[in-house]
Design a protein around this nucleic acid. Structure first.
Lengths: 205, 205
DNA sequence: TGTTAAACCGACCGCTAAGTCTTTTATGAA
DNA sequence: TTCATAAAAGACTTAGCGGTCGGTTTAACA
């Protein structure tokens, strides 16, 4: 195998396993050895490829987490159909995935923000960047909806974005452990109710 | 000083400092020695009063956390005035407190749930109990509002409660680090907008 | 004032974790 | 086949943690 390919493959394997364990047990509660044990690799292999545990995690964020959030929460609302439907379906899908995941520990980004907040400024910066991208995309989606005439033109796009992000992050935590399916259903009902109040009164053009 | 009083005083000091450090740095990132150092106490004193770190934390939950959540989020909505106004003011106050707290690390209950979820079933049970109390009180407040004629009788009280809890938990995380004041304002605007859509169409009796 | 038990001290133990360093193995180019 | 080097091994260092335990101080009370 090409050396560079082998290098990439090993690093990728480490990162994928690392993300899963960090998500499941928390960053500080997961040791490098835990990750290496699953892969039958050694300390030497790890520190050959990565500078430190922190560097390792930042690479995970850049390589895996960004894409994950993007594909689950941003890309699905980029279309040009009815914006509120797009967001509604996007949330519905994301929550449904969580419901069916026995190993669900909440919204990955939310969990890491909680863990690193006030403890590691460097990592927080990377996580906040992802949040900001999400926010920007939500805002422009809503503005698109206003432009298309689906959303009332008096609606505050930034406000709605903050409200949506809050609600989503919160419900993901709330769904962990206690009646995820019922809570998802109730949450989505109220979300749609809220969305109804944002719709333009007149028929869209 | 009475021995029993002294005992209580020491335990109280440990718990108060413990909660602050656990909240600030996380449970697993705070060592017993960190807490004892601040109080100029020794390991011996700690293990004389508490069985273990876990037992210590559970007592903190029971003695401090429950009351804290109760006084901030439950007691303020127990009145008999317009329910949605009560909740709105309650959230406003809680968020305003957070804005003015330089050492804000998010909603304390949310943070601990994230940290212990899937890692410590025993502690999670205690945390979930608090959530459930909050939920029950929100539901009954909303039902009271329906009964009083302020809230539309078609409104799903359980659904609104889940939605409110989600939104609050989420916005507290979102407010950490990034423009807390602006986000609070936007959040509250949308919350009031949402509340408007829950009001009874006819004038209340 | 002397007794007694509660309250507290702090050295110590066993363990785990991040990171280092020397050695070994695998691989591709010559 | 040889050789240089990438990749990986794994023993070791250092630090910090939860928890133990024998000893010391303190204060209420007879």
């Amino acid at each position: 195998m090409d050396k560079n390919l082998k290098r990439m493959a090993t690093m990728q394997r480490m990162q994928v396993t690392g993300l899963r364990l960090f998500y499941t047990n928390g960053y500080y509660n997961t040791s490098i050895d835990d990750i290496l044990k699953e892969l039958s690799l050694s300390k030497g292999a790890f520190y050959y490829h990565f500078e430190s545990k922190e560097d390792f995690f930042i690479q995970i964020i850049e390589n895996l987490l960004v894409r994950k959030v993007y594909s689950m929460l941003i890309e699905p609302i980029e279309g040009h159909e009815h914006t509120l439907d797009l967001i509604s379906n996007c949330f519905e899908d994301a929550l449904e995935t969580a419901v069916h995941n026995d190993l669900d520990y909440g919204f990955v980004l939310n969990n890491f923000i909680n863990e690193f907040n006030g403890r590691n400024q460097k990592i927080m910066k990377h996580l906040n960047d992802i949040l900001r991208v999400w926010e920007v995309n939500l805002v422009s989606a809503i503005q698109r909806g206003k432009f298309n005439g689906h959303i009332d033109r008096h609606v505050d796009a930034e406000g709605v974005a903050v409200f949506l992000m809050s609600a989503y992050m919160g419900v993901r935590t709330l769904m962990v452990e206690n009646a995820p399916s019922a809570r998802k259903y109730r949450f989505m009902s109220q979300l749609r109710h809220y969305f109804k109040s944002l719709e333009a009164r007149t028929t869209p053009v």
